[in-house]
Design a protein around this nucleic acid. Structure first.
Length: 472
RNA sequence: GGCGCGAUAGCAAAGCGGUUAUGCAGAGGCCUGCAAAGCCUUUUAGCCCGGUUCGACUCCGGGUCGCGCCUCCA
């Protein structure tokens, strides 16, 4: 039995699909006006892991992750850049796709864009007005009336009377209640707009998710996910819109992943302490980043630093080292096998990837001792459920997945001297030369060669099967 | 002011009312020409104060500290 922490009930609950063997899942994706940062990487990786686990468990999964391609920040950024919104958003959608592919993320089944669902939003807004949940104010904007929805605050645990609207942001005087939020914004000069019964304008932020989730998954679906910062007001508002429109529960389970932090503070644009995915990938293999994210439980805060990435890299290196030299292939996992059962138990407990990974390390230890290919295959396939260890071991250890420049002549700063790194063919030649030296018991020469390689970050390892190498 | 989360060894990070988490780092050993990798052994824990219990890191209460949400944010 799979248990998931449900933000709505604030405890772990046994997951029961609405329709047998099917999971319908909606996750709030990116607003595409800039490169994705590590916080975005976490959402993508976490829910990729969740969908992979459902599939590994035999569920038929429909995973929808939206793209917000119209909003204030996009309009502003496009204006500042002197480009059209379409050009701007497409560029960052492409960048996002590239980043997510590198992180080993399986694309969601459906990636709807807000601008493709304007009609649906207009229909829903009209319905909300008709049912008395929304109103058009004198400035033309249409607002949702939070007081009209009795359950408002049930997700975030907030009470309308306790919310301090206006304390930090000036309240829009056109609202009946300070917490009312906009469904439709009337047109402003030089802004993109669509026709609607309330005049030309564009949608507010929250309405898109209510419309797109219902369109692709139905009014009532299994799981809604996103970053913790979306719990309020975004998800609260989605519930208010959807449940008022459809008269039924929106999502059974709400999942929120924890923040990525820097120096114990939330990584965010406003604090300026964010690292984009591509910046981090200049230095680390994407799988190291994926490993780093999955090593912690998805709801815990995750502190980012180079030290932690280095640590993750060392750990992942241990797993790949154990796999080296084994022929592995994709197999169906026998979940009755003790280690597989332990892995499964961990995953069934609210996706405890941390514990699941401990199983991988135990398998690596077993593999190092027994050298059994069946163990290698189990390790490979269990890790595969997490989207890990799917590279060729030597490719990973040789640093093929990194952007470390392997061209001759590229200087690697080290101490006072710039040193030169080698291409793999040079390394092979040097390894051969060292083996010759060893054969003739010229250990001084052999050690010189090894030192020469070590100075450029190449570590040699002699094994009964010959000499292998890896990047430090 | 309201609401919520967390505090585990040098670092990271889990489970668990009594039995080795796990990874990195440290120590010793085996292996190795020497290393590296690997294997074996091992040192460092559970914010503070009470309570429950035969027994608490684990449950309960109270502190302290840190973080988050209440505004756009993954």
């Amino acid at each position: 039995m799979l248990k998931i922490y449900n933000s709505l009930s604030r405890n772990k609950q046994t997951f029961t699909p609405i329709e047998a063997n099917k999971v319908r899942m909606y996750v709030c994706g990116m607003t595409v006006y800039d490169f994705c940062h590590l916080g975005h990487a976490r959402v993508m990786v976490v829910f990729d892991m969740v969908s992979r686990w459902f599939r590994a468990s035999g569920y038929d999964v429909t995973y929808v992750r939206n793209i917000t391609d119209i909003d204030d920040k996009i309009i502003k950024r496009a204006f500042d850049n002197g480009e059209t919104i379409d050009v701007l958003t497409q560029r960052f959608i492409d960048a996002m796709d590239e980043d997510s592919a590198r992180l080993g993320i399986i694309r969601p089944d459906i990636e709807p864009r807000a601008t493709q669902h304007i009609d649906g939003m207009i229909t829903m807004i009209a319905k909300l007005i008709e049912k008395g949940h929304a109103y058009q104010s004198s400035n033309g904007d249409v607002f949702y009336s939070v007081r009209s929805f009795a359950d408002y605050g049930k997700l975030s645990g907030k009470s309308l009377d306790d919310l301090r609207a206006g304390e930090r942001v000036e309240v829009d005087s056109f609202k009946k209640d300070p917490m009312d939020f906009v469904l439709w914004k009337s047109v402003k000069p030089n802004e993109p707009n669509w026709d609607s019964p309330w005049g030309k304008g564009r949608p507010g932020w929250h309405i898109e998710c209510s419309v797109m989730s219902a369109h692709h998954l139905g009014a009532h679906f299994d799981i809604h996910g996103g970053g913790q910062d979306l719990q309020f007001p975004h998800h609260e508002n989605e519930i208010a819109q959807s449940e008022a429109t459809h008269n039924c529960q929106m999502a059974n389970t709400w999942m929120h992943n924890g923040f990525v932090r820097v120096d114990d503070e939330k990584m965010s644009k406003s604090l300026g302490n964010f690292f984009t995915i591509r910046t981090v990938l200049e230095k680390y293999d994407p799988e190291v980043v994926r490993f780093f994210i999955l090593r912690a439980h998805y709801r815990s805060p995750l502190n980012y630093s180079d030290v932690h990435l280095d640590d993750a890299k060392a750990s992942l290196t241990r797993l790949y080292t154990s796999l080296r030299g084994h022929e592995v292939s994709t197999h169906k996992i026998d979940w009755s096998q003790p280690q597989a059962a332990r892995f499964k138990e961990a995953m069934q407990d609210d996706f405890n990837t941390s514990e699941a990974m401990a199983v991988l390390f135990d398998l690596a230890n077993e593999l190092n001792k027994t050298k059994q290919t069946t163990t290698a295959n189990l390790l490979f396939n269990l890790a595969g459920v997490l989207g890990l260890l799917q590279q060729d071991a030597n490719d990973f250890l040789h640093g093929a997945g990194t952007t470390i420049n392997t061209n001759i002549g590229v200087a690697v700063a080290s101490g006072f001297q710039a040193q030169v790194s080698f291409v793999p063919s040079d390394i092979d030649h040097l390894i051969q030369a060292r083996l010759e030296a060893k054969k003739s018991k010229n250990f001084a020469e052999a050690d010189t060669i090894r030192k020469q390689l070590a100075d450029t970050g190449i570590i040699l390892e002699d094994t009964p099967q010959g000499t292998t190498w890896r990047r430090a």
